[in-house]
């Protein structure tokens, strides 16, 4: 039975976004983000690649809860200045207007603190995983979900992305392999394995079933 291309035909970015949003907003757990990593083959090397397909960022309690003692990993003033600069440049890139503004509201939004999880999500857009590397690659190549719950488990992972996730305040990262990619979910909460969630991902993202 033919599997449609995830990024082609009817499975375009709009439907992908809709599915990621449905997954997160409809979940009983509090997920911070969902990413779809799309599989492809590098034309030159022939290597298998998992690259950014699309993502939905909901956010966590890092902006909504009362101030907590700042984690040792919480960004410094210099790091915040860097993040804001990058965000301003990204706004320019998207809007096509120097300094990224279509009005004061955009400038104000850019000047708000860029949280650790927002930054982790943004950096994810530049990442890819070759031949089974990283949590998404491991999940895809083993055809088995990876569910890493707990800062300690993330921090001690052999995977750079998992360690990075812990540094940026995430407590749970899940990678669920599909025919043409991987759905990754992350949360600042500790969330234990749920068969319901994995079934929901497979129903939402496997069109041919």
């Amino acid at each position: 039975e033919a599997q449609p291309s995830m990024m082609g035909g009817f499975f375009n970015q709009d439907t992908l976004q809709h599915r990621l949003q449905t997954l997160i907003e409809g979940a009983k757990e509090s997920w911070t983000y969902a990413i779809f990593w799309n599989t492809s083959v590098d034309d030159v090397s022939g290597a298998s690649l998992l690259g950014w397909g699309d993502g939905y960022y909901k956010g966590g309690d890092d902006k909504l809860s009362p101030p907590l003692p700042r984690r040792k990993t919480q960004s410094s003033a210099a790091e915040q200045a860097h993040r804001r600069k990058v965000l301003r440049e990204l706004n320019s890139l998207i809007s096509g207007v120097p300094n990224g503004g279509d009005g004061e509201d955009v400038v104000d939004a850019v000047d708000e603190e860029v949280t650790d999880t927002e930054w982790f999500f943004l950096v994810s857009m530049t990442q890819s995983f070759v031949n089974g590397s990283g949590l998404p690659g491991q999940a895809f190549f083993s055809s088995a979900p990876l569910w890493v719950a707990g800062g300690d488990r993330l921090a001690s992972s052999s995977c750079e992305r998992a360690r990075q996730a812990q540094v940026f305040g995430l407590q749970t990262v899940v990678c669920i392999p599909l025919a043409n990619g991987v759905v990754e979910l992350g949360s600042t909460d500790m969330i234990f394995q749920s068969a319901d969630l994995m079934n929901k991902v497979r129903i939402l993202f496997n069109f041919s079933r």
């Binding site: 970015q13 976004q17 950014w52 699309d54 993502g55 960022y57 956010g59 902006k63 990058v86 965000l87 440049e89 990204l90 706004n91 320019s92 890139l93 998207i94 509201d105 955009v106 104000d108 939004a109 708000e112 927002e118 999500f121 943004l122 857009m125 530049t126």
Partner: peptide, 26 residues
Amino acid sequence: PAAVPQARKASLARFLEKRKERITNA
């Protein structure tokens, strides 16, 4: 920003728009 390929632009634009909404509505 230079590391963000054209294909990511839609995701990025959506993220920035949602972020603006979150901050405006906070």
